[in-house]
């Protein structure tokens, strides 16, 4: 299907002309693509950030042993000795409850004001541990739960699993919604193109009689679908860019430091990588559906 420069110009012109002619169908088709890709983009943003946060949490702390407030110093020392001697642990760090409070204040800001006095501090002393091999975290954590003076064990994995569950839920809902929307988009695009084909059926018939190849006839319709798809991808990309920028600013303005979000270039890079091909894909698929039955020689 080689197309000469002349032919390509002709095809582009025809595609643009017919997009203008069926203005409302064009707007509807682009609209559905926009909505589909906007949702996809939104879900991708949330998902990528959830994954990012999950990774962060995983790296930061692997196991936290919360100490029983009632435990004696001797018990605590015994625990410390045991931990240091433990073959699977790489790092053992004591974090006092006042240190924990300071850390929290740094992350959350003024929210924790009012817990200044040591007696009021609702947090507990803890040991933060790093295992030599991440895959051992679960087993080691369970083992340590039985040690003296240990009130509670929290390990990164638990948080990570919760986050993963959240991510999965978001993904599932998003996927179902998007599949529905994608089908609608293809359907509407197909309909738009079919309308164009119908309006131009006389022209197409004449083209066939004067010896136009199938591809010569098809190109304008294919380009029409492609343009709908491209436009439908470009608009959500713009909208998502500004939304994300605003979210980042909001997070910064509200001192929500614990929300470590991905920077714009990375997010936008990912979005462009998926949304543009998807948009054009939907467009081409839509026009392909409506073409073959009409445009055979």
């Amino acid at each position: 299907m080689p197309v000469r420069y002349n032919g390509l110009l002709y095809a582009c012109g025809e595609a643009l002309r017919s997009l203008g002619r069926n203005k409302w169908m064009t707007i509807a088709s682009v609209g559905v693509v926009v909505v589909t890709l906007l949702m996809l983009g939104g879900f991708m943003m949330v998902n990528l950030n959830l994954e990012y946060i999950t990774e962060n949490v995983k790296e930061q702390v692997e196991i936290v042993l919360y100490l029983d407030d009632e435990s004696t110093l001797a018990e605590r020392n015994e625990l410390r000795e045991k931990l240091l001697a433990h073959g699977s642990l790489e790092e053992v760090r004591f974090v006092s409850k006042s240190e924990a409070l300071q850390r929290l204040r740094k992350q959350m800001g003024d929210v924790v004001d009012g817990y200044e006095g040591r007696e009021d501090n609702p947090l507990r002393d803890s040991f933060e541990l790093k295992t030599k091999h991440p895959e051992l975290v679960g087993a080691v954590a369970e083992e340590l739960a039985g040690y003296p003076a240990v009130a509670d064990v929290d390990y990164g994995e638990a948080t990570v699993e919760k986050l993963f569950a959240a991510t999965r839920a978001v993904q599932l809902v998003g996927l179902i919604l998007m599949l529905g929307l994608a089908v609608t988009a293809v359907f509407l695009i197909a309909h738009t193109i079919r309308l164009t084909v119908f309006i131009r059926r006389r022209e197409i018939m004449i083209m066939k009689y004067v010896g136009a190849t199938n591809w010569f006839i098809r190109w304008p319709f294919l380009l029409e679908g492609l343009m709908i798809g491209l436009l439908g991808a470009a608009l959500p990309l713009g909208a998502l860019y500004y939304t994300y920028q605003a979210s980042l600013e909001w997070v910064a303005a509200n001192n929500l430091m614990f929300l470590t979000l991905l920077p714009i270039p990375i997010i936008m890079g990912e979005l462009v990588k998926y949304l543009l091909p998807l948009g054009t894909g939907l467009g081409i698929l839509g026009s392909a559906f409506s073409m073959d039955q009409f445009l055979r020689v």
Binding site: K208, V210, G211, A212, T213, N214, R296, V297
Partner: peptide, 14 residues
């Protein structure tokens, strides 16, 4: 073959 048909028609004025 189908793809030759346009070239046949270019040689026939209707």
């Amino acid at each position: 073959p189908r793809h030759r048909v346009p070239y046949l028609r270019r040689n026939i004025g209707m």
